[in-house]
Amino acid sequence: MSSRRRKPDWLKMRPPAGERFTEIKSSLRDRDLHTVCEEANCPNMGECWSGRDGPGTATFMLLGDRCSRGCNFCDVQTGGMEALDPEEPTKVADAVAEIGLDYVVLTSVDRDDLPDQGAGQFAETIREIKRRDPSILVESLIPDFQGEPELVEQIIDAGPDVIAHNVETVERLQWPIRDRRAGYEQSLSVLERVSRESDIYTKTSLMLGLGEYDHEVYQTLSDLRQIDVDVVTFGQYLQPSRSHLDVFDYVHPDKFETWRQVAEEDFDFLYCASGPMVRSSYKAGELFVEALVRDGESVEDARNRARAAD
């Protein structure tokens, strides 16, 4: 790996602070819970946790803080897998209630070491949150579960309002960016199963700045719409450390805006959040999806409306 490139001015962020930030962090620490915000060093943690544009949000990371895979873009620790905490679903639901969230994002590390790859614990956490308060909206950002249909079905049956799974990058760059156990077609199969077999909104995310060509991004958007993915986000890849993949390019904000327009206007995605600091769990996207769900419109009706508006 070469030395890290100097970041442009548009990528500079304020350090996290504020009363709301402190409150959320305290609630998580009291229950020994993890967030992807912290584990992956998300650049939006200060904004989301401090609640500058409304109530603070956090993305809970289930199944521990160690991943069984080793993707070369990700800062989450790998190896040394630990036993699951059987109280985790209850702890997460308690934290959601204490913090006062009405839109919850759940994600997880990969747990290829477990017989069900963690799908059961993921599903139980969704059910526990909904059991406490059915009005709380739950977005589940799931692993690929090695593409096993019955494990994806467990998440669908638990009844989240949104199921997200990230393709991360264009098909050509899947390796070396992602672990070899992941794959473009495998990720598409997960998203297609959700969109074809449920009335649940689907969502995915791509990182830019890894050496992708425009025509490859365009093809990825086409592939995603062919399987009725509803929401897509674009964000800048940032190198977590010198041992991770180098940044190929810092994409200008104007280019991100162009991709937003392409996604929404050319491909009829219901929504696209696109910007250097956008991540898959991004509050602007969550607020949009929340409005869709609370409006009571079915997923199919929303898709048809988007197509008719083109």
Rank of each mutant, 00 (worst) to 15 (best):
residue 289 V to S: 03
residue 213 Y to S: 12
residue 238 L to H: 05
residue 266 D to R: 14
residue 43 P to K: 10
residue 52 R to N: 11
residue 277 M to T: 11
residue 69 R to K: 14
residue 23 E to M: 14
residue 269 F to Q: 05
residue 210 L to T: 04
residue 24 I to C: 06
residue 146 Q to E: 13
residue 114 L to F: 09
residue 289 V to L: 11
residue 19 E to V: 12
residue 284 A to P: 00
residue 82 E to D: 12
residue 232 V to E: 01
residue 158 A to M: 10
residue 155 I to Y: 00
residue 65 D to E: 10
residue 144 D to R: 01
residue 300 E to F: 02
residue 78 T to E: 08
residue 306 A to K: 15
residue 296 G to I: 10
residue 285 G to D: 08
residue 155 I to Q: 05
residue 7 K to H: 00
residue 305 R to A: 15
residue 135 S to D: 14
residue 151 L to E: 06
residue 273 A to F: 00
residue 307 R to D: 10
residue 104 V to N: 03
residue 248 F to C: 04
residue 295 D to L: 11
residue 84 L to Y: 11
residue 226 Q to I: 04
residue 263 A to M: 10
residue 202 T to I: 05
residue 168 E to P: 02
residue 297 E to N: 00
residue 262 V to L: 11
residue 151 L to S: 03
residue 97 A to M: 09
residue 232 V to M: 07
residue 278 V to I: 12
residue 211 G to P: 00
residue 70 G to T: 13
residue 234 F to R: 01
residue 106 L to T: 04
residue 231 V to A: 06
residue 229 V to R: 04
residue 304 N to F: 07
residue 308 A to C: 03
residue 142 I to S: 01
residue 48 C to P: 04
residue 19 E to G: 06
residue 62 L to Y: 05
residue 191 L to R: 05
residue 77 Q to M: 06
residue 209 G to K: 05
residue 206 L to Y: 06
residue 2 S to V: 14
residue 208 L to W: 02
residue 67 C to H: 02
residue 158 A to P: 04
residue 157 D to V: 12
residue 77 Q to A: 14
residue 258 T to G: 12
residue 279 R to Q: 06
residue 236 Q to D: 07
residue 180 R to D: 08
residue 34 H to R: 10
residue 283 K to W: 07
residue 201 Y to E: 00
residue 60 F to D: 00
residue 97 A to S: 12
residue 245 L to D: 00
residue 149 P to Y: 04
residue 111 R to Q: 01
residue 243 S to D: 14
residue 275 G to I: 09
residue 47 E to S: 12
residue 59 T to G: 03
residue 6 R to N: 10
